[in-house]
């Protein structure tokens, strides 16, 4: 009777679903957050620290200090500061992971069962919604940059992400020109309306530094989101295979 005992111990579909979503979001979020943290420390943090030298006045753009080296050495590692960065990257990517598994579970039945490869497509879609489209009008800000009111920018960011999510969903899972037109409106409306802007530009860092910062920020996000989707897809394909093998014949 061992098989019977096993079948009796099977968890309900709902419990199974809770475990699948929570464990895959946390595991993939941890992995992607770790990668995001490492990419930040290697590629973004040096640019950020460089910009801070302009923010505090150690370096001056077009100023008396212009003869100082354009790329001074910045600290390689600051334990507390970089440790917190790693921690918050993992936390934020776990949050992204929860959002992505919610969307993937909602799409079950409309889409093929995700695997490691198709998971990358989901990850890139998440990157487009959460990072690329907000950045289309609200570029990643290097320290010292002039910007509009923080609350206004957060509200604009939230609404832009929400409308981009609906737009990508319509493009992926709806058919017909009406849906696609609605998606186009949702994609571009926040940018036609415009993101909150500062009254005047007073950024301290040179444009070269600010541009590199924005590019590095988006590039790191792209890689980390791809890994997030890939790991979730891999875990889901594995869970699906296991549940099919364990199902009684």
């Amino acid at each position: 009777m061992p098989r019977m005992t096993y079948v009796m111990r099977r968890v309900s579909p709902a419990t199974d679903m809770y475990m699948k979503l929570i464990s895959s979001a946390l595991f993939a979020g941890g992995a992607a957050g770790l990668l995001a943290g490492l990419l930040q420390l290697l590629f973004v943090q040096p640019v950020l620290l460089h910009a801070e030298l302009y923010e505090v006045g150690t370096l001056v753009h077009f100023g008396a200090g212009a003869s100082a080296p354009a790329n001074p050495a910045v600290p390689v590692l600051e334990l507390t500061r970089d440790g917190l960065s790693l921690l918050f990257n993992i936390l934020i990517y776990c949050g992204y992971g929860f959002l992505l598994v919610a969307a993937m579970a909602l799409a079950e039945g409309r889409s093929t069962v995700p695997n490691g490869r198709t998971g990358i497509v989901w990850g890139i879609a998440g990157f487009v919604v959460v990072q690329m489209l907000p950045a289309f009008s609200l570029a990643p800000e290097v320290p010292g940059v002039a910007a509009g009111d923080v609350y206004d920018r957060q509200v604009w960011w939230g609404l832009t992400v929400a409308s981009a999510a609906v737009a990508l969903w319509l493009i992926a899972f709806s058919k017909g020109w009406t849906s696609w037109a609605a998606a186009a409106v949702l994609l571009f409306a926040p940018h036609l309306y415009g993101a909150p802007e500062p009254d005047y530009f007073a950024g301290t860092a040179p444009p070269e530094v600010a541009a590199l910062f924005a590019a590095r920020s988006l590039g790191s996000g792209f890689f980390a989101w791809s890994v997030l989707g890939c790991v979730i897809g891999f875990l889901w394909a594995r869970a699906e295979k296991a549940s099919q093998e364990q199902a009684p014949v």
């Binding site: 579909p13 709902a14 929570i22 919610a102 579970a105 869970a239 549940s243 199902a247």
Partner: peptide, 20 residues
């Protein structure tokens, strides 16, 4: 006893999706 996405009913999905 069937589990996994293929057998997950809508009611079984709503709670987990909302929580996530």
């Amino acid at each position: 006893a069937l589990t996994g996405s293929s057998a997950a009913t809508l009611s079984a999905k709503v709670g987990p999706i909302l929580l996530a």
